[in-house]
């Protein structure tokens, strides 16, 4: 495992992703969701919206890093808000 050179932040990041995936699976089994259409021009399930949210969050972070010198936490907060909007009304 040493060659993978883990760091605390990346470990937390992957644990977080893992927890989200397990949580989404449990949620899906407990109350299966149907496809619906929100403000996105697509029929999406919860899982689709999660994926769209994560991918767009990654791009938001990248653009944020490239264009500003501000603390990255600002981008993370922005993304969290975006995720909530997307999951609820997307």
């Amino acid at each position: 495992m040493a060659w993978m050179s883990w760091t605390l932040p990346t470990a937390l990041f992957f644990i977080g992703i893992g927890v989200i995936l397990v949580g989404m699976t449990a949620w899906q089994i407990a109350s299966p969701c149907v496809e619906r259409r929100g403000f996105l021009p697509l029929d999406t399930t919860r899982g689709d919206r999660l994926f769209i949210g994560l991918l767009s969050s990654a791009f938001i972070h990248l653009v944020f890093v490239a264009l500003t010198d501000a603390n990255l936490a600002v981008a993370t907060v922005l993304c969290a808000i975006w995720m909530i909007i997307l999951m609820r009304w997307g």
Partner: peptide, 12 residues
């Protein structure tokens, strides 16, 4: 596993 490793490398 390689993807995780790449993520680890990218911040160090």
């Amino acid at each position: 596993i390689p993807l995780m490793t790449v993520v680890n490398y990218s911040v160090q």
